[in-house]
Amino acid sequence: MRERSYQALSLMAIAAIAVGFTVATTVPPERVQGEFAKIMFVHVPSAWLAFLAFGVTMIGGAAWLIRKTPIWDRVAAASAEVGVFYTALALMTGMIWGYPVWGTFWDWSDARMMSTAIMFFVYVGYLALRRSIPDPETRARRSAILGIVAFVQVPLVYFSVTLFRTLHQGTTVVRPDAPIDPEFLRALMINLAAFTVVYAAFMTWRTRLARLEDELEETEAVADFEIAGSGITAPNLEEAPDHV
């Protein structure tokens, strides 16, 4: 991609955020929760995109295993990173919203929140694994497999936590289940679109950065290769300048 296109994408992302923010601030407050509910404009898109991002990580990993082309590994890695960012954002906004509404930052009765937190740690582990493997091919292969295992686990985690909650309704906090205001929904959708544009921008930048890192690594490897196998002259210690 040309430098121009990267700049255009950056501008689009900034514009999308601006539009999303404007819509979020101008929409009338929600009937039950008032202005508090507007944190949903960040929370819901973040959570959705986190799932999307981890799905892309799995697809990237699977594609790498089949095609063995570096681009797929870069896509998987970039998406996991962006996904962890969005997951953290979803968790934080969830907790900030939860405090005034539920009276507590962390609500153990919310299955989605618990599974999101577990997902967060799984992918923090994924990124830690990537950092730990120096060889690009080994890194791509092992993280591809972990990316697939992790995503297969997500529904199991979600299912088990939901099961856990539905059987223990006693502690559930009363939550507003009023039908959603159409104007509010529209604003949510606009923000979802905006966050998706930002995701696309993050992905493009991050995969480019990964490609540049790989190229740098390769250049260094070539330089190393010149050293290996080349002759060494015995250092002449007799003639070394005496600094004592």
């Binding site: 740690f121 799984v122 295992v149």
Partner: peptide, 10 residues
């Protein structure tokens, strides 16, 4: 352990 702990939650 970081990989095992969340995956073994169920």
């Amino acid at each position: 352990p970081l990989l095992v702990a969340p995956l073994s939650m169920p």
